[in-house]
């Protein structure tokens, strides 16, 4: 046996070692999974115990206030947002501190990100205008994505402090997280949606001037005495305005819903089976964060592109 091993090629030895390691890892993962199954809520229920390893998740849509500085209430989502901003700022500042023609690793990462975003913007709006649209669109993307991704760090569920609340006439101790994914706070998607809305309208007016406003308000036919057509026009303009405003709602709740659902999914998955089980969901949330960021930025981009296109027909 020893001789056989001695005569084997190094590659074969490595591959055998790799196989063994893989096997070991699989067994360890399986053991962890089983341990999670036993210690989690599911196991507890089967074993007739009161609670699993983790306390019951407490789902609250409104983000919790964790700091109050002179009447300014700071929510855990804001802290998380600052953390994300800090990470992003550190990344870009370190990467572009002294840029080289032949980029280093960090610089390459940031360059790839910015170039990718630029290409994304270019694909919709064309090369000529892409550079003036890149800052806002890119920032929306990075804002959403980094806020979603940073919340997947294990410190998020770990940093909690207990707080007793009265719920249903019953004193209850819940764990309030110190950090919470910013996307799960309605204000963050709403703020972004408002920024996006203002941005779209700003570009529309800037590019088309008053002709842009003519989309929402067309008194032309009414003034010329064509009453019926005039009212139809007014109605259509109103419709445009409504759909523009409803966009804020749909932007807000799309992001809010996705982020919150992801958060709850992770929470519940870890609660039911503490180990290993939630890992695929973390991967999923990574993807969801990316996709939502892409959608938010893409929608803003597309609607801006529509807004700056001169519209034909009645003015």
């Amino acid at each position: 046996m020893a001789e056989a091993r001695g005569t084997a090629t190094p590659a074969a030895a490595v591959s055998r070692r790799g196989t063994r390691l893989l096997l070991f890892a699989a067994v360890a993962l399986l053991a962890l999974f089983l341990a999670g199954l036993v210690t989690g809520a599911i196991g507890a229920a089967f074993l007739g115990k009161d609670a699993g390893l983790l306390p019951r998740p407490h789902v609250q849509l409104a983000a919790e206030e964790v700091l109050n500085i002179g009447g300014l209430s700071l929510r855990n989502t804001v802290l998380s947002n600052w953390l994300a901003m800090l990470a992003l700022a550190l990344l870009v500042i370190l990467a572009t501190r002294n840029m080289k023609l032949v980029p280093g690793r960090l610089q390459s990462v940031v360059e790839i990100i910015v170039e990718g975003l630029l290409q994304f913007v270019e694909s919709v709006i064309g090369q000529a205008k892409a550079r003036s649209f890149l800052p806002i669109i890119g920032t929306i993307f990075l804002f959403v994505a980094f806020n979603a991704w940073i919340a997947l760090l294990p410190i998020y569920p770990a940093l909690v402090f207990p707080e007793s609340v009265v719920e249903g006439g019953q004193q209850e101790v819940i764990n309030v997280p110190l950090l919470r994914s910013a996307g799960t706070d309605l204000n963050m998607p709403l703020a972004l949606a408002l920024v996006s809305f203002v941005y779209v309208e700003f570009w529309g007016i800037r590019t088309l001037g008053f002709a842009y406003l003519g989309k929402f308000f067309r008194p032309g036919n009414l003034l010329r005495g064509r009453v019926f057509q005039g009212f139809i026009d007014l109605f259509v303009g109103l419709l445009e305005l409504i759909s523009e405003l409803i966009r804020i709602v749909s932007f807000t709740f799309r992001l809010f819903g996705n982020m919150t659902a992801g958060e709850i999914l992770l929470l519940v998955a870890s609660f039911l089976v503490p180990f290993v089980f939630a890992v695929p969901f973390y991967g999923l949330e990574l993807l969801v964060g990316f996709v939502q960021a892409l959608i938010f930025a893409g929608l803003t981009l597309v609607f801006t592109a529509v807004a700056i296109t001169p519209h034909e027909g009645e003015h």
Binding site: V124, S243, I246, R247, F251, G298, L301, V302, V306
Partner: peptide
């Protein structure tokens, strides 16, 4: 981009 424009239709 064309499909994105209908993303808020349900709302």
């Amino acid at each position: 981009a064309w499909s994105l424009r209908f993303a808020g239709l349900g709302w």
